[in-house]
């Protein structure tokens, strides 16, 4: 492929990839912890042999909690749950949001109004309340939390997709495709989705970070994954009472949470710069 690189382009490129690389490293570290936790953990989740609130030591890197469980083990399990919550919520949000968004972009008259009103209500509806309703209807599991967060986020995604699709549909090349006898499903798959993808994927990356935070909030309130699965939110909640004597219990999940969210946001930022059609136009 031919490259036409302007000096300004060359100057900008390293910055861009640094953002993306930094984000990937941060988020990747947490993802690595999560992956390792699937096959190996320093201690079993219910192993209380460590003595209570020992503080960081060689055999317990982050110390133990008030029941004598290893905090590093909990932090690892927590990162797995955080990544699962983020991925799951974004998948739910993308599946529902893109479908509803494309539909409402095509809808006219009362259907358009109804869908818009529905999305507005869903956006205004507190995620917490939605989560409590779903937990009440099902049970307090990670799945319930993911469903609640994904549903709440799908409204935001749908509204974004609706606007993006409308903007693409107004372009002459869509009219040209219709003139060529291309069917609507083909136009959506071939022209619309590829053109909204760059903006959409950046938004989904941001939603991932928000979902991780929301899951931590829900499990802090006891609406997330049930024990003995340690989620960062619940670790924070459990360490709250002993924060002054054993700060590691609250600091570890807190710092990991911040790292993951910053990492994902950096990835979103880096993606925006590399995927944006305007900059891509110059790069390609």
């Amino acid at each position: 492929m031919k490259r036409r690189t302007s000096p300004a382009d060359r100057a900008n490129r390293p910055n861009r990839s640094y953002t993306l690389i930094a984000g990937c490293v941060l988020a990747g570290l947490i993802a690595l912890l999560a992956l390792v936790s699937l096959v190996w953990l320093p201690y079993a989740a219910d192993d209380t042999s460590g003595g209570r609130l020992t503080g960081p030591a060689a055999d317990h890197l982050l110390g133990t909690d008030k029941l004598g469980r290893d905090l590093f083990t909990q932090a690892m399990t927590g990162s797995r749950i955080a990544v699962e919550a983020g991925l799951g919520s974004v998948l739910v949000a993308a599946a529902i949001g893109v479908t509803l968004g494309v539909l409402s972009a095509f809808a006219q008259g009362w259907l358009d109004d109804t869908l818009s009103a529905f999305l507005d209500i869903l956006i205004a509806f507190p995620t917490l309340l939605l989560a409590m309703l779903i937990v009440a209807a099902r049970s307090a599991t990670l799945g319930s939390a993911v469903l609640a967060i994904g549903l709440a986020q799908s409204a935001v995604v749908a509204r974004l997709v609706r606007i993006l699709v409308k903007r693409v549909l107004a372009q002459d090349y869509i009219t040209a495709a219709r003139t060529s006898g291309t069917s609507w499903p083909r136009i959506v798959a071939g022209h619309v989705l590829p053109n909204i993808w760059p903006t959409l994927v950046v938004n989904l990356a941001l939603q991932f970070g928000l979902a991780v935070l929301a899951e931590a909030g829900l499990s802090y309130l006891g609406l997330g994954a049930p024990p003995p699965n340690a989620s960062w939110g619940r670790m924070l909640q459990e360490a709250q009472a002993t924060f002054t004597t054993a700060p590691a219990g609250a600091l570890a999940p807190g710092i990991l949470l911040v790292l993951l969210v910053i990492g994902v946001n950096l990835v979103a930022d880096g993606l925006r710069d590399t995927l944006d059609p305007a900059t891509r136009r110059r790069r390609a």
Binding site: Q171, Y173, A176, A177, G190, H191, P194, N195, R281
Partner: peptide
């Protein structure tokens, strides 16, 4: 408009 007559990503 030749700019919008073609899909920029195809």
């Amino acid at each position: 408009e030749p700019l919008t007559a073609l899909d920029p990503l195809m």
